[in-house]
Design a protein around this nucleic acid. Structure first.
Lengths: 263, 263
DNA sequence: ATCTCCTGATTTACTCCGACATATTATCAT
DNA sequence: ATGATAATATGTCGGAGTAAATCAGGAGAT
């Protein structure tokens, strides 16, 4: 992959892919970034639960073989994402889940780094089933010619590569991204980063379990046609079907899909 | 609750409100937190636009009269929220708006710290008009007795204090929070922090311009009754009306509401 | 002569270290 | 039980050294 979630800037640069972007010296990111990833996944995986208090700065930093500065910067990242909070004397403790910015792309990545919580995946799809049809409706009303072109290109790329390849999955993300962008709503487009991540991870899951049982192209074509034609109701309807089918595929590929009741 | 956006931990503590939470020694938060706020608002207000590169660490830290440690920790916070990215030699530059986590509660607070962008407010209400009716629908199907009780209490508090008081606005937030929570969807509840912030700031706006022209209680009662009765369609419908009315009020209180076209 | 590619030099962020300041909790005396 | 006091962990500071990426220069090929 071309580093999709690792925070890289300078995308205005035409191309400088030296193919050896992964320096390989252990942490690809900077040290504090790698630390934040390590601690973030530890928290998301439940290794440190809400209310738990982490070891003291000096002790923990020494245990992790990093300086206090690097450790503190990592903690600031986690604090910014609502995972932990620090106070003098009281130490650094993990906040209740309600405070976590679960829709933050990086947090989402951490959540899917290990075995993802099936309940959370269900919630994400439920959110998709609400957001994306509405976005498709707005996109049908507001899309520009440029939006349509991007969607058409992404669709063609999907057809060419199929979802079995990374390029195909990237095209899938591009397609959904283009719709969110065409909705003309900044706040909604921000969710595309979150939803895109969710789609990415779950698609990977489907991939892992078995061959794709369904050809996703026709569903996408229906959505595209409706948006291109400016038919808002049809776009929303088609997108609703698409998400439902994706949910169905994901559900069947996850062993036991619980209908857990909320506590 | 007091201190809605200031990151306080230890809410499990029964009560330790010393009433002097605002220490008053200038920055209420820690220094790096105050710095992040300062820089964040500067970026959100457009003082530093996307692509701009900030002064070097040493120079900027000295100019701000803080140590490089504090400055760097603040930058890590901004980086975690997608506002900036740093690279050796290249410096620290502001990322394009698309990368900003605009739904992060803290970022939202920074966005509303100055004169808020009317287009962005419109987008937030549009998002509300999509999320909240859907959440109300789910809440009608899944609400527990406890959820209903919380909503009833919040409604009573709203009636008692009215939206002219801070307590009343807090009750309003609690009401909407309770609905999002009752939806039984973690991902959706996370949005309540964002939506709640948006409601808070816009309500404050309405307050600033003139007396509330409309009594919000009846709308809320209709939503509550439908959820309590378990009528999903009625709940979604009532919530849709509520958001539309709130949008109408906000629109009329902002001088010129542009129907700007997207670039 | 122009362009490409490689090489090195400079600038900048990154990491580390040790010390002090501050805030909060816990302890102890009243 | 209440207040002052001490202990402890986070917060802040300043400097030194490392690693990395960009820019400039030069050798080579077109």
């Amino acid at each position: 992959m071309k580093t999709s979630e690792t925070g890289d800037l300078a995308e205005q640069k035409p191309e400088a892919a030296k193919a050896k972007t992964a320096t390989g010296h252990g942490p690809g990111r900077r040290l504090h970034g790698a630390l934040a990833h390590k601690l973030g996944t530890a928290i998301l995986s439940g290794q440190y639960g809400p209310g738990d208090v982490l070891p003291g700065e000096v002790a923990f930093a020494e245990e992790l073989k990093v300086s206090r500065s690097a450790y503190r910067e990592a903690i600031q990242v986690l604090t910014a994402k609502g995972l932990v909070a620090s106070r003098p004397k009281a130490g650094t403790r993990v906040l209740p889940r309600e405070r976590w910015n679960l829709l933050d792309p990086e947090v989402l990545a951490w959540a899917f780094a290990g075995e993802p919580d099936v309940g959370f995946v269900r919630d994400l799809f439920e959110l998709r089933s609400i957001i994306e049809p509405a976005a498709a409706r707005l996109a049908a009303m507001r899309r520009s010619k440029d939006d349509v072109r991007v969607m058409r290109d992404a669709l063609a790329a999907m057809r060419r590569h199929t979802l079995t390849t990374e390029a195909g999955r990237a095209a899938d993300r591009d397609f959904h991204d283009a719709i969110l962008r065409a909705s003309g709503n900044q706040a909604m487009f921000v969710l595309s980063a979150s939803i895109g991540a969710a789609v990415h991870w779950t698609t990977q899951f489907k991939q892992r379990s078995r061959e794709l049982p369904r050809n996703p192209i026709p569903d996408h074509v229906r959505v595209f046609d409706a948006i291109a034609a400016g038919d808002a109701d049809a776009a929303a309807e088609a997108m609703g079907v698409l998400v439902d089918l994706a949910l169905e595929d994901t559900r069947s590929s996850m062993q036991h899909w619980p209908r857990e009741e909320r506590a």
